[in-house]
Design a protein around this nucleic acid. Sequence first.
DNA 1: AATGATGATCGAAGCGCTTCGATCAAACTA
DNA 2: TAGTTTGATCGAAGCGCTTCGATCATCATT
Lengths: 337, 337
Amino acid sequence: MPPTIKQVAERAGVSTSTVSHVLNGTHFVSPPLTERVLRAVEELDYQLNPVARSLAGGRSSVIGLMIPELAVSYSGEILRGIDEALANAGYDLLLHTTHNQRVKERVFVHKLAHGLTEGLLLLLPSDPNAYLAPLYKKQFPYVVIDHQGFDDFSPTVVSTNWQGAFEATRYLIELGHRRIGFVAGASHTSSALERLQGYRDALQRAGIPFDHDLVREGYFARPPSYEAALHLLDLPDPPTAIFAANDVSAFGVIDAIHARGLRFPHDVSVIGFDDIPEAAAARPALTTVRQPLAEMGRTAVGMLLEYIAEPERPTRRITLDTELIIRESCMPPKRSV
Amino acid sequence: MPPTIKQVAERAGVSTSTVSHVLNGTHFVSPPLTERVLRAVEELDYQLNPVARSLAGGRSSVIGLMIPELAVSYSGEILRGIDEALANAGYDLLLHTTHNQRVKERVFVHKLAHGLTEGLLLLLPSDPNAYLAPLYKKQFPYVVIDHQGFDDFSPTVVSTNWQGAFEATRYLIELGHRRIGFVAGASHTSSALERLQGYRDALQRAGIPFDHDLVREGYFARPPSYEAALHLLDLPDPPTAIFAANDVSAFGVIDAIHARGLRFPHDVSVIGFDDIPEAAAARPALTTVRQPLAEMGRTAVGMLLEYIAEPERPTRRITLDTELIIRESCMPPKRSV
DNA sequence: AATGATGATCGAAGCGCTTCGATCAAACTA
DNA sequence: TAGTTTGATCGAAGCGCTTCGATCATCATT
């Protein structure tokens, strides 16, 4: 059995409260006693029990992260940023994957908000209205990553989705494309909506009429995006370029291009969104809009730590810039219009 | 404030111990009382506090995972398998990344083994002797993933590294290669050693003398593997194929091939190990030895759960099969010998 | 009918810690 | 010198739960 605070106290000849105070810096303790306590801690190789600590109302040094799915590079990159920042701050990470099941969100938040964790990070929550307001009211620290627009009190970190989509589309237009398909994301997320809007606005700005037939939902996933792209490619007047709402979708689109016996990128250009590691690894490498994923994770941790230190701090919302990364998957259309 | 067991007890008109018993099934409680307790739980939307539960000696429903680094797909894949299996079993995951710093391992294990977690999963521990024996002695449940050979009591799950390397090398030989380079992994891991041995044994079996110059360490990472491959390629009698100890190294090797102005895979074939997602996404797609990474994670969780249920259970060591995945990165040598 | 056995329920202790109020000695004031 | 303030240290309560032993009906036994 590991040593307890009581044993440390005995060995140092002081009370447990004194030990607690020196360990937490909660109260001034005279140098000689401090010294004795520290020595006892050293000798016993004592470590505070985080569970007891947390029950008694102290810091647990763990923060909770709720994530929809681990299987995607997108989450992985954000997770990396979070992990890095948390490690620097001496926190551990309690990870909960909802596997895209809404029900699990409530349970998780409920369970952790008054238990082990000092704060919560919510990545792409799909049903936030169900539980965020109470958290906020209790001043329980939390930060939402990559979702916005469902309330106006939650601290969030997001990226410039509209801007990124606008620039991607404009780039395609500048290459000479006029028929540009769009494989949209899951429409219950604000990022999907914003990207669609960026696409439409860029079209409009260039005087290209919006064609409803050129937009299909791909739900941010490869198989449905493959299907969506097939549909687009089979149109009487098919697109010469396709903008996919994220990189994973872009790969589905590329699959479809190959499946139709077309040459990529010569016959159809493709542009993605996110810049996950696979985008750079693919050949031809994928042109895409980079979201600073790891940076978003780091930023969210920074904010969360601020809220933990000072729960009544006013809500902040941080927006990070996206960036067009030009690689090899886009060319001018073969037969320029 | 969320409801406590006491409030549930009051509302149901029973003692807290009765509530605890019905919630945990630790003791028979008559149907009418059970019914009342359950209704009170329902009405209050009560959830057991995992912290208090764990302090008092009950289940915390969290297991700890120690992982060297999150930045690599290899870890990500294993993590996926773990996460999936854990979710099915109703456990949460406390993640701790050591960022390859040995010191952190001891601290983490020390901290978690007698606190919050019911069991530990250790991925690629680098300094296990320092803390595993005490854990074992205390019958604290843990499972080591992808490392072996440092003791003979720890439960482990590994894959057939030797076999995979042997087959990869044999495949290259069958294609006609005789000069086969090897970019080795970090030599303090048993998997690196086993793969090297598989390579040597396949060579020997084919009657090809082992050439020390054809082996360079790449430490499982891209930049050093790039350097290693450069060195190999600059040899007076350079290899016509290079076997990299993992996929990340293989990408470093490919970088080097391009850097030397050679055509890939026409001039130099490359084969990797692991089959991370990027291997399939790359073009030409990477031929590699698949380790069932997610499956290893799942298996480890399964074992851990068994140990949690029955700590005195004898040590098991599970070995999962690797598999050669032939894709596009290997061809017969240009000038067959 | 009285005693013993059986078994559901309860009360209380305790898990390891934090924290509030009490204590007691030293230092200061008049 | 007596009275007051100051501040370091301690004791004890309590966080929400589990679990052990005690209790008190109920039922079987003779």
